[in-house]
Amino acid sequence: MNLMELRGVSVIFEDRGGGFFKRRRFYALKNVSLNIGEDDLILVLGESGAGKTTLGRVIVGLQKPTNGSVIYKGYDVWKQKRKIYATYRREVQLVPQDPYSTLPYNKTVKEILEAPLKRWNKLSKQELEKRLVELLDMVRLSPPEDFLDKYPHQLSGGQRQRLNIARSLSVDPKLVVADEPVTMVDASLRLGLLNTLAEIKNKLHLSMVFITHDIPTARYFYHLVKRGNTIVIFGGKVVEEGDLEELLSNPYHPYTKDLINITPSIDNLYKEKPEVKINYERVDFGCPYQLRCPYVMDICKKEEPQLIGTNSHRVACYLYGGQNR
């Protein structure tokens, strides 16, 4: 059974831009379905504004979907709250992006980690102490004794992010959503952090959703975990889905191709990159990528393409059929 399932989730933000009676609807996510099994790794790729973070927030329950349902262990977390909500909120945790603004500045490491432990468990003083040391050891803040009485401002960006990870692990989650966990961390410390994160994932058999805009980072993490289903989102929609290596070596969707082409890499530094149109306008009908797509056809402007293909690699694009559905 799947640990978690998103069924046709849409998140709509409304504003009054369209006059007094007509509200403008903005689809942050549009009809996203996703299965997360136990011990799975899901990599989420996309540019800013694509809906990556909103997806993460829906998974951990910080954002209630406008349409669709979030199923955790077989229960709908928003409709069958009494049955599952407490378990769900405990077992699904978030590692936030920015280690500089997500830790309380007036609390020590010990206090930060104690709070969730005390909220969910009844522990004696010795047990608590033991658990704290265990957690800090796990995220490789060693020796743990040195860190317990420190304040976040005494830690480096990498160390803060380690503390963030320890905090989300403190309540024994089953599923962790890591939203750009290394983007704000110094370049020379990133790999170390990814190593630790993967080590924890592999050891505890956690399910993990790893959100990033950076393909090389995703690829490094994929190799540490040895597998990883990837979804590429654009304009709130999943445009392509599949195993990361398969997706990179054989991308289908024009957006995935563009994304790979503009990513700088150590071996293509001076290669001329293809022109990519920039356009952040959203469309109401049809394929979300139609304004930037070089292969745009008539049908792309009228009807929304659906995900088609095999279970291991699916794409939502009319270039690969699906017109006569």
Partner: peptide, 22 residues
């Protein structure tokens, strides 16, 4: 050297890199 080896490549083989922290 550390900075440059910290960039995972887009293509080809990926090696695990251990980074010492400050």
């Amino acid at each position: 050297q550390l900075l440059i080896s910290s960039i995972p490549p887009l293509k080809g083989e990926i090696k695990n890199i251990n980074v010492k922290e400050d």
